[in-house]
Design a protein around this nucleic acid. Structure first.
Lengths: 244, 244
DNA sequence: CTACAGTGCTTGTATGTACAAGCACGAGGT
DNA sequence: ACCTCGTGCTTGTACATACAAGCACTGTAG
């Protein structure tokens, strides 16, 4: 049949209209959480569109977390919706530059250490095996905004210690040498250790945001990093929905 | 031809492999930011897959912000990207129950106040207009894990104060009464005020994670809430990529 | 020299078809 | 009573094809 192209000027594409229709049903309460919505074939019959078009609409809504699809069972309205907020944490260098400020990185130290039990576990290496360690301070207009305390698996980045981190951030170097396939994050609030407070030029009692990030290349851990940011100087923001 | 199904056991689908290949090229620096990557037809010829399969891979990467596609021009590597991590913050009650623990909510206070200048601004109401205020503590196995300090716009939830928050969380009630269309979040690290520390049963110097959330229904603000969580007891986690 | 239509590329959408994979249920055997 | 296998539904992926829409370049007409 192939009846594409009869669409008028401003009419949105079919798959988008299907998405809107479904969001409308959910928003109006007609399809509450956990409700099973019609199958692809039923929607095909009801709307007179191709299954691939329906499939695309449902797949995208599932990717957005609005729907939950289970092969063999059906498609259901997800329940999380009311409460799942999404945060994005970006590369610090990019973020600073995007604000139009100057970014600089100071290498405090760079050396090779023997893996402690915790470190061996974190990086998935043998106890006592050599591990690279670096301590870098990121400055925004000469004010310290982040302390980057990083351990690197030498097997995946043997030349790590030879790099100049004021020219290329450790992050950028590592993602070039060993592209990641999986990333793991945690965010918490902590008090800085005395030496950390000194490096960040803050008082010992000032709370900090701590982001822990572990980066995997396949099954192996490339690097594990602690990003310590003064609570007053940085925060994570996000906005979701109609961007007003 | 239709040669589907020759795929082995654990082999990921073709479109996913194409995505990985592209992410690898970008990660390795072979395709830097702003670089134009091969067209769909070129990839079809190079990889021996159908254009729809290539299209799906590129479309999904574009949706993730990794690629930028311009009709008539081509597909380009987006800038920034290199380290955007995504965090999900869920409803605390759900999260606790999902861990198999007991969740309880204690209402500390519930009253009507007059909007201060800051409050009026935050909620978009007149200065001095009545505003509902509630203070609820969330407990996980009888240990306080979150202090919820909430202000509500009476216009959108007039019966708010009459609710029993030990039966239904304020959150859950509000999302039923006034479904949100937009949410705004910030996360930072702070020290608790003395009275807050007392309610959370922590020391005054213990750092806390503070999540601020503003919820909109259309153009109007439904509620603005401060979620204060002891740094040691809770954190935000996320995992991205091949789920191990 | 300039304006404009044409051409050839690109991505965007839509359809029809095919087979794989997963789940629930019931019929049948043990 | 219990186990097993088949059947019919569901979603997941892959393909071939078609046309629309947008962009840059080129050749031609003025």
């Amino acid at each position: 049949m192939s009846d594409v192209g009869e669409r008028q000027g401003g009419t949105p594409p079919h798959y988008a209209m299907v998405k809107q229709m479904i969001l409308g049903r959910i928003g109006s309460g007609e399809w509450p959480a956990r409700h099973r919505i019609p199958s692809e074939n039923e929607l095909v019959a009801a709307l007179g569109l191709s299954r691939m078009t329906i499939n695309r609409a449902l797949r995208e809504l599932a990717a957005d977390g609005v729907l939950l699809r289970i092969q063999g069972l059906g498609t259901f309205v997800a329940e999380g919706k009311s409460q799942t907020a999404v945060f994005k944490v970006r590369n610090i260098a990019d973020e600073i530059r995007e604000r139009g400020h100057a970014h600089a990185a100071q290498t405090v130290m760079k050396d090779e250490v023997k893996a402690t039990p915790e470190l061996a576990d974190e990086l998935g290496v043998e106890l006592g095996a050599p591990v690279f360690h670096s301590l870098v301070i990121h400055l925004e207009n000469d004010i310290p905004v982040q302390l980057e305390d990083r351990h690197v698996n030498p097997a995946l980045a043997p030349d790590y210690l030879a790099q100049d981190f004021s020219a290329q951030t450790p992050n950028s170097y590592l993602s070039a040498v060993a592209p990641w396939t999986t990333v793991e994050h945690t965010v918490e609030a902590v008090l800085p250790a005395p030496w950390e407070a000194r490096l960040l030029a803050i008082a010992r009692g000032d709370p900090c945001l701590l982001i822990r990030r572990r980066t995997f290349s396949g099954e192996r851990v490339v690097t594990s990093v602690r990003l310590l940011m003064p609570g007053g100087r940085s925060r994570i923001e996000s906005r979701q929905g109609a961007g007003s």
